[in-house]
Design a binder for these strands. Structure first.
Lengths: 353, 353
DNA sequence: CTGAAAGCGCTTACAG
DNA sequence: CTGAAAGCGCTTACAG
């Protein structure tokens, strides 16, 4: 790597100027004459010189790096395209401004990883990919005044910079759609009650039922975890009740796999006897039979917006505090279609509308 | 962030030693007395001092960072758990040695991203997550002697450090298993002929057929791309032939979704009329009806091993050149079971064994 | 076993 | 418009 040995002094010598001048040319400093800029730039390009990042960081007291916290033990975050889509949005946006992305992972806890990156001055800011209630990571950065953007929502502090889907409204819309399909006993399955986005969805669901004067039956709400097994067991249990649900909203695709199996094993028809809807679109929701109605979320945009806001923050610009929402989309498919073709003649009972 | 302002000089003053000594205590240099170490360590811990990474990098001419190249526009790499599993394996392993992971993404091409990280001396080494035939990224690092590990195999150079699945043998085993289910016309669908791992699988498939004296019919091999649509169209086409396949090996889960749909739409029974097997295990292969036989690959281990080897390389240790293989697993499920229960009585034709 | 000093490769007030 | 010089916060031969 012959080129990497070249320093600013070498370029200065070759261009017959001082290293101050070379540095300013690289910075496109307006005080340098166009003539000098042109001449020095030619040398720089000819030799492929790039300033060494460590030296730069030390001198400028700025790393031009941003940390990303990868959740530990959160299979759910990887099972949808959330993680890599958000990552791509973040990286693309940051790279355009010459920022690099450091991944915090491998330390015993996420907080350890954050502390290491922060205390060794590796990064200028952080993007958090999710939040829980009373999130220790959020608290740490908030207390220390370290610049960060949360992809998600912070319930504890109003002045945390957040980028999120409007989970409340999305959940409201989805519930409303199902209600309009003629369903009255709508179950909610999957996800952890510790997750802020799940809480938001629960609230949207409640709000919608309230608005339609449907009594809230807490037996129909089964938060707990996200897994195929959980979806299966929980749905079986619900279907065995005296008054089973006539619709179900599932928090993620993996859990939905189990829910669908349970419904099939109970020989119930979708959507006639049980309508099904799910958050996050994917191969399963799109190609299952019937295809499943989803709320599809724009994860790339979530990452890109978070990165944009962080860059503004680091640049000393004003950023709106609190939540900034990204659009979502309600994709209606057969699993909730009121007028879905009925291919079976063994429907046990018809619903009342 | 009061603590982040502390420098080695502050600690030296507080401990009443020189900064050289503080530096050596941090390094656990054997020449420092235990007494001094204990005393200085106490101060360091008390104030939570950590050396600043940029200054360290500059002085040591080493970044303690490793770059990861995230493939652009390769949906397939994200659709399985490969990407995040490998990432976790890499990050965990590197973090234990105090290494950080920089992500190269967002630049117009992967090579641009690599060049930027290398030319600005941001990283000590690189891990590549895949390779193609005549891979420009590999060539660049190879030509420049930049330390890197390839997750995959390099066909062009024997002395590139690689960590890979034994795709040849895995494909051989899978083909052999299907052959032993009594199948003779085994199709191969999906993946790009540019990808080294696909080529390896093709070779393993050919080798197995040869060994069983089955003539190779190139009409049965449909490399091209990975997508649900490609799987569907290609499989439909094959099934419409005069001599359709009686088994199919699919290169990835996404394509397999399409292949399964095509078989179902043709009203053929799995595995009696067409056996199906797939590379990579996931929600679809495990929960589809019937469940699909897979080769499951250990992506975490792939990443971890790559990281371990890179650390050895950077540490000046001898690493075996060429390929180092990680274990895989053949998981036999209903889609290839010779004795699978037949639930249908409308089988159009029975196979000859 | 410990310290003073040089040096890593940049940036940036300061001076002109 | 340009340059000489100090400084960013470490490490590490060198000397003792």
């Amino acid at each position: 790597m012959a080129n990497s040995k070249l320093t600013i002094k070498d370029i200065a010598k070759l261009a017959e100027v001082s290293s101050s001048t070379v540095s300013r040319v690289i910075d496109d400093n307006p005080r340098i004459s166009d003539e000098t800029k042109k001449h020095v730039s030619e040398i720089i390009n000819k030799y492929g010189y790039k300033p060494q990042s460590a030296a730069r960081s030390l001198a400028r007291n700025r790393t031009n790096s941003v940390g990303i916290v990868i959740p530990h033990n959160d299979i759910n975050i990887y099972s949808s395209s959330f993680f890599h889509e958000a990552l791509k949005g973040i990286c693309s946006t940051l790279a355009k401004q010459g920022y690099d992305v450091l991944i915090s992972a491998g330390n015993p806890t996420e907080l350890d990883a954050i502390k290491r990156l922060v205390s060794t001055s590796r990064i200028d800011g952080i993007i958090l990919l999710r939040s829980t209630v009373n999130d220790m990571n959020v608290e740490y950065m908030y207390d220390n005044g370290f610049p960060f953007i949360l992809i998600g929502t912070c319930l504890e502090h109003e002045d945390v910079y957040c980028v999120d889907n409007d989970n409340f409204k999305a959940s409201f819309d989805l519930t409303d759609h199902i209600y309009k399909c003629g369903k009255k006993r709508i179950a909610l399955i999957g996800g952890s009650g510790d997750s802020v986005f799940i809480i938001k969805r629960l609230n949207g669901y409640h709000k919608c039922l309230e608005q339609h004067n449907i009594p809230i039956d807490s037996e129909l709400v089964k938060l707990g975890q996200s897994s195929e097994a959980y979806g299966y067991d929980t749905m079986r249990e619900l279907l065995n009740n005296i008054t089973p649900p006539d619709a179900v909203i599932v928090m993620d695709e993996t859990t939905c796999v189990g829910v669908m199996k349970a419904i099939n094993d109970s020989c119930l028809k979708i959507p006639e006897q049980v309508a099904v809807a799910c958050f996050n679109e994917g191969a399963f929701t799109n190609y299952s039979k019937p295809a499943i109605t989803t709320i599809s979320l724009d994860f790339y945009e979530l990452g890109a917006r978070a990165a944009t806001n962080l860059l503004m923050l680091l640049g000393g610009n004003k950023v709106k505090k609190g939540c900034c929402f990204v659009n979502y989309n309600l994709s209606i498919r057969e699993s909730t279609r009121a007028n879905s073709k009925v291919n079976y003649n063994n429907l046990k009972k018809e619903r009342d509308e």
